[in-house]
């Protein structure tokens, strides 16, 4: 894998970070990670129909570990480069970027502002785009395939559109060849190979790699790495563009689904297959 990024440098409206023509220090990758309620916990929506995020059960979105792993291994393979881990979320969300630092990211950025609460996917993408611009851009933006809370998978393509860079979502394989990024993706019934020149955005699936665990050295090193905290004002965004004020959708109602009633549990004593067939017939499921 070879890197030659200066050749693909774009200026407007989204400048990649690696500057200095002919003297490229490696590629700068921004990884977007989300802090989500642990899916093993009892997740809920609160009185304002927003996800309860203060239950102490928050964690780095598992699928974003694949994004971090992809970025870290690209830089390792190239022997140079930089990984910045970025999150948008409440105070607790800093844990998500800390975990990224422990895994090996070089820098962390946490955008936190009360006005961001209640953002929809597009609002979140706006803040991420503004933050990436504020940081001076990137050669490659890597995201997870979905947030395991909302599972919308809309942020990556919206973010690419806002940054005006090509989007290569759902990479099960990811290759950087010079200044070209190529992904293989498996969709329903279809396998595609997509390619683009840097700068670009890639989202990776959980097929892409096996995320590393932070080791002791990584955990110790992370303590010395910087975490930058930014607010909306730092990004030149108005409060009414994001958060609940800027949201294009509004959750009106939320309720836990009733537990399934009349559940039947049969222990097989030799005729369970027959009983299963009878159940399907009785309930008009055949």
């Amino acid at each position: 894998m070879r890197w030659k990024v200066a050749a693909v440098r774009r200026t407007e409206p989204f400048a990649p970070a690696s500057v200095a023509d002919g003297n490229v220090p490696g590629v700068r990758i921004v990884v977007c990670v989300k802090h989500v309620p642990d899916i093993q916990s009892d997740r809920s929506l609160g009185a304002t129909c927003r996800t309860v995020r203060d239950g102490g059960d928050g964690t780095l979105n598992e699928l974003d570990e694949n994004a971090l792993e992809a970025a870290l291994s690209l830089v390792e393979a190239a022997g140079e480069g930089e990984v910045v881990v970025l999150t948008v979320g409440p105070d607790d969300a800093v844990d998500a970027v800390r975990k990224g630092l422990q895994m090996g990211a070089d820098e962390a950025v946490h955008v936190v502002d009360d006005a961001i609460a209640g953002s929809d996917a597009i609002g979140t993408a706006r803040v991420l785009a503004a933050a990436i611009r504020h940081l001076g851009g990137a050669d490659l933006v890597v995201t997870g395939m979905a947030g395991l809370d909302g599972l919308t998978s809309v942020v990556p393509s919206a973010l690419a559109a806002l940054l005006d860079v090509p989007a290569l979502p759902l990479a099960a394989e990811l290759v950087l060849d010079g200044s070209t990024v190529r992904v293989t993706r498996h969709l329903d019934r279809v396998t595609e190979v997509l390619e683009a020149d840097l700068p670009a955005l890639v989202s990776v699936t959980d097929q892409a790699n096996e995320p590393r665990y932070p080791n002791f050295k990584g955990i110790m090193a992370a303590r010395k790495k910087p975490v930058t905290t930014l607010a909306l004002a730092d990004l030149g965004l108005d409060a009414d563009q994001v958060g609940e004020a800027g949201a294009r959708t509004e959750v009106l109602e939320a309720a836990p689904r009733p537990v399934r009633e009349d559940r039947v549990l049969v222990h097989d004593t030799g005729d369970a297959g027959v009983r299963l067939a009878a159940y399907l017939v009785e309930n008009q499921l055949v």
Partner: peptide, 14 residues
Amino acid sequence: TVFAGTWTTSTAVR
């Protein structure tokens, strides 16, 4: 439905 089918929601477009 959200959260692995455990909650139902309704969302209005603004």
